[in-house]
Simulated scan of single mutants.
Amino acid sequence: MAILKFIDRSKNNGGAVAKYAGSLLHPYSIEVTPRTAAKIDDFSALLPSGTRVYIAHIAGTSIGDMVATARRLREDGFAVMPHFPARSIPDVPTLESWISLYRNEADVTEALLLGGGETRPVGTVESSIQLLESGLFDRYGFKRLHVAGHPEGSRDIDPDGTTRNVDSALKWKTDFSGLTDAHMAIVTQFGFDPTVITTWAERVAQAGITLPIHVGIAGPAKLQTLIKFALSCGVGPSLKLLQKRALDVTRLMLPYGPGDMVGALTDYVRDNPQTLISQFHLFPLGGIEPAARWVADNTITQPRPATATL
């Protein structure tokens, strides 16, 4: 659980920016793709040592490119967590091949397991539950496994608009966490309404979920960019906040910053120490460098364990 200490708050174009010592932003994790990572000359100049870097496996990306990106980031001293999108993995032998490549060629011991963006499975693997049931991550010595959380639901999993299947899947994964040697946590999709996040976190806790929650936060970006990603990623209720902002011509041309979300959620954790919310995961929708700079400008660095230990 993050230890919070209020320092300062001010206003800028990105909304209310909170500076905290040891806040949910210190440490944080961030997401890249092989293509976006290739544009960064030196990650060490942008990210704190030990930062967990997720590598998104976008459709069409080769496993070779994924492993090469993972190797580079590991050699630079980061904790690396590649995506394993179940519906893009043809079969269990392919899954084992991927795990072996990451483990043996890039020293990867962490993974995000999720259903993935494919509407239909390309083979016999359909869900993150099947990935866990394979037992391969334990066999290859993976130390940390994260799974996806959907505070605004998922039409891919619950087409009827309920949360029945996503809730039961999280409960299954919570039970599974007692059977694996790996540490487990939930990482959520990004959103724009802190109340949606906190209400969901309280509801899943009441349902018996005990896994720590890493809340997805959209990094600084143009409003049009955020709306495009929100529509493509299925962000629902909180999208209304973006659309409302788009109607305000005085704010339309201003860049979006995550200050309001970060401030509200950090205050919530301070006031609700029993919450499962434990840190932030940054989606750099407007670019890796602007996202990393925003965090550096809005946190006060204090000694705290690296992300990989949380």
Results as ranks from 00 to 15, higher is better:
L265A: 03
G286H: 00
V204Y: 00
N165R: 14
G14H: 02
N298D: 09
T195F: 09
I197F: 05
L247H: 12
A106C: 12
Q279D: 14
L226A: 03
S177P: 10
V147S: 00
S62D: 11
D260W: 04
L112G: 05
R304C: 07
H214V: 03
C233W: 02
A106G: 07
Y256V: 02
V166P: 01
P121Y: 08
Q224H: 11
T162W: 13
I227L: 15
P151S: 12
A230Q: 00
A221Q: 05
S128T: 06
G263A: 15
V295L: 10
G191P: 00
G286R: 04
G234N: 12
T188S: 12
S23A: 10
V122C: 14
N104C: 08
G64K: 08
L170R: 02
S168A: 15
D41M: 09
E110G: 03
L254Q: 09
K228C: 00
R304H: 11
R103P: 02
I3L: 14
G259N: 13
V249D: 13
Q206H: 13
Y256T: 01
Y20G: 01
L73W: 00
W172N: 08
F84Y: 12
G15E: 08
T109W: 04
D156A: 15
S100P: 00
R139D: 11
Y256W: 12
S134Y: 08
S62T: 15
F137W: 14
L241F: 09
K173M: 13
L132N: 03
G161D: 09
I217V: 13
T266S: 14
P284C: 10
I30C: 04
S10R: 11
S29A: 13
G77D: 07
L211T: 04
E96W: 06
T250C: 09
S278Y: 00
T36R: 12
A37R: 14
L47T: 05
G208Q: 11
F190N: 02
F6E: 12
L282C: 03
A106K: 01
T188I: 10
F192M: 12
F176I: 10
L179N: 15
D8V: 03
R245N: 06
R245M: 06
I40M: 10
L24Y: 01
T188P: 01
T195P: 00
S49Y: 00
A207N: 13
T94K: 08
G149D: 02
A38K: 15
S23P: 08
S49I: 05
F176C: 08
S168L: 11
T180R: 10
D158W: 03
K5I: 09
K143D: 11
I186V: 15
E96A: 13
T299S: 06
D181Y: 05
P90T: 11
T309K: 14
T199R: 07
R245V: 05
R52S: 03
A308W: 07
I227V: 15
S97E: 14
A308C: 11
P27A: 04
R164I: 11
E152D: 13
R87P: 03
V80M: 04
G219R: 05
S278N: 15
A68R: 15
A308Q: 13
F137C: 12
K143S: 14
H57S: 06
I217P: 04
I7F: 09
H150Q: 12
E202H: 06
H183K: 15
R270A: 12
L223S: 01
L4G: 01
P194T: 06
S278G: 14
